[in-house]
Design a protein around this nucleic acid. Structure first.
Length: 216
DNA sequence: CACCAGGCAAGTA
DNA sequence: TACTTGCATGGT
């Protein structure tokens, strides 16, 4: 079976089983960007608490958050864990928009995907996954997000080798799928859903995973 | 109690 | 280059 057919069939199996996910759960692109940093190696439920703190304090927008001292920001995002580190990382991100886009968030959101990705990766604390999450879910650009779930699900199903790195794995998806933001959005979200359900680190329920229906 | 969660950077040899 | 470690809260 051809590689591109396999990747589309996997998507169809997941979509049929779980339906549209409509990620990212954020009300504005800015909120999505903040969430992308806060969720690094952290359960999403903890991130919600941190974001709610920011929202209730009325600082969940580019200008307000930029004006907030880092130590105060750290205290507000405490529930998300690594709060001192993430407060710095958020400010690094905001500083990049200030210096590279003259403080114009909209300019960043509409910038060329490769230029924006380059700028994001130059931010201390923003790696490939966070960068692609922002590009896909905030900027709505066709950047495929790879995360630990993606790696776990696809390596366990022998769709990629266990040792495959981020970039190689991303190319596998991009080269075998039509370049479609909506597709990339749903696909990544569906992988997270199926991983949480059937591909846990311990006690994996592989036998019942819908991806066993793949025609390989 | 141990383990996990939508990473990343810095340090070590 | 290839490992290892620090960062930290909250849920199971």
């Amino acid at each position: 079976m051809r590689r591109d057919q396999l990747y589309l069939e996997a998507y169809d199996l997941l979509y049929t089983r779980f339906g549209p996910q409509s990620w990212w759960p954020g009300e504005t692109p800015f909120e999505v960007m903040v969430g992308a940093v806060l969720t690094q190696n952290t359960n999403w439920s903890n991130v919600i608490n941190a974001i709610d703190n920011l929202r209730q304090a009325g600082v969940l927008d580019y200008r307000s958050l930029s004006a907030l001292p880092v130590d105060q920001l750290a205290e507000m995002i405490r529930p998300s864990g690594y709060y001192n580190l993430k407060a710095k990382r958020l400010h690094n991100l905001l500083s990049m928009i200030e210096s590279s886009y003259d403080g114009d968030l909209q300019w960043f959101l509409e910038d060329d995907v490769w230029a924006a990705r380059e700028n994001l990766l130059n931010v201390k604390g923003v790696g490939p996954e966070t960068a692609d999450s922002i590009l896909l879910y905030a900027c709505e650009k066709p950047a495929f997000v790879i995360d630990t779930y993606t790696h776990r699900v696809f390596s366990r199903h022998n769709l990629v080798d266990e040792e495959t790195d981020y970039h190689t794995m991303q190319e596998e998806f991009v080269n075998n799928l039509p370049t479609d933001t909506k597709l990339f959005n749903e696909y990544h979200a569906l992988i997270v859903v199926v991983a949480k359900e059937y591909c846990k680190k311990t006690n994996p329920l592989c036998q019942q995973c819908p991806l066993n229906g793949l025609n390989m």
